[in-house]
């Protein structure tokens, strides 16, 4: 296996230019309209709204302004698949279409996916959706094809401010720690890393530097793996099965006539 690769997205230097969104769409040939349905919000700089089957990068615009608008700031964040080490999507996929690659990234093989959509609800971050062109679930591949060719992902290549950093996880973590230290020394005490250690789903191979609580960016504080519910749900169902069987045994015992 090659070394684990990923993204470190430093949201503090994002300028919201969306070069990453455009580069992603161009390289991956993603359609503009969702199966003929226009989905542009048209009421915000955030006109693509979300990550889904045709938006594999999405720049979030979060406005934080006081009521009189004297004080304020924009938070901008280029969101993407987190390429989780313990990935919910990969866990539930019943066709084996979702795989972990030699770069320790998570990829959906479109020719194996049959569009059951189990992965969409399993992802803790709402990253995946159906691409209307293929009818299959799609998301960021971390440009697997480019990585195979020795290139960096299209979004990282296009990012003009180095908000999106691509590299080995080891290097990215060093970079992130250094940047965090710089910000904190400069007085930005709200700065923190999101997903940079193993506590979150074994580690996110696409992690972030944030300057507010994760929820403000639309990120869950404690994302969870779907299989946490498997054992308890199964145990309750077994109890239920036993109860129903006993009830039926008692109710049906010697009922009816054996004539017909």
């Amino acid at each position: 296996m090659a070394e684990p690769m990923g993204f470190f997205t430093d949201t503090t230097v994002c300028i919201g230019c969306k070069a990453c969104e455009v580069a992603c769409k161009e390289w991956n040939q993603l359609p503009a309209a969702n199966g003929g349905v226009r989905t542009l919000s048209g009421d915000s700089y955030d006109n693509t709204r979300q990550l889904d089957g045709i938006h594999w990068r999405h720049v979030k615009f979060i406005e934080q302004f006081s009521a009189d608008r004297r004080q304020g700031r924009w938070l901008m964040m280029s969101d993407v698949c987190k390429h989780c080490v313990h990935a919910g999507c990969l866990e539930v996929c019943p066709t084996g279409a979702i795989v972990r690659t030699e770069f320790d990234t998570v990829d959906i093989q479109s020719d194996a996916c049959n569009g059951c959509r189990d992965c969409i609800g399993a992802c803790p971050f709402g990253v995946i959706d159906i691409n209307p062109v293929s009818g299959t679930a799609q998301k960021c591949t971390l440009c697997y094809d480019r990585l195979k060719g020795g290139l960096e992902p299209a979004c990282a290549k296009a990012c003009p401010t180095q908000s999106i950093n691509f590299g080995t996880i080891v290097d990215l973590k060093k970079l992130a720690q250094a940047r965090l230290g710089t910000l904190q020394r400069a007085g930005e005490t709200r700065a923190s890393l999101y997903g940079a250690d193993e506590h979150m789903l074994g580690g996110l191979n696409s992690f972030y530097l944030l300057v507010d609580r994760p929820e403000v960016y639309g990120l869950p504080t404690d994302p969870k793996i779907p299989s946490r519910n498997l054992k308890p749900s199964a145990i309750w169902s077994v109890f239920g099965s036993v109860a129903l069987t006993l009830m039926a045994m008692v109710s049906f015992r010697n009922r009816g006539t054996r004539d017909v």
Partner: peptide, 28 residues
């Protein structure tokens, strides 16, 4: 009869993944 509810619970969706009783509910 029961796995359908377990399937909903083994996700990250609101309501479905917030309880472990959907499997037994659907079963009954």
């Amino acid at each position: 009869a029961g796995y359908t509810g377990v399937l909903l619970a083994v996700s990250n969706r609101p309501i479905w993944a917030d309880t472990t009783l959907l499997g037994v509910t659907f079963l009954i």
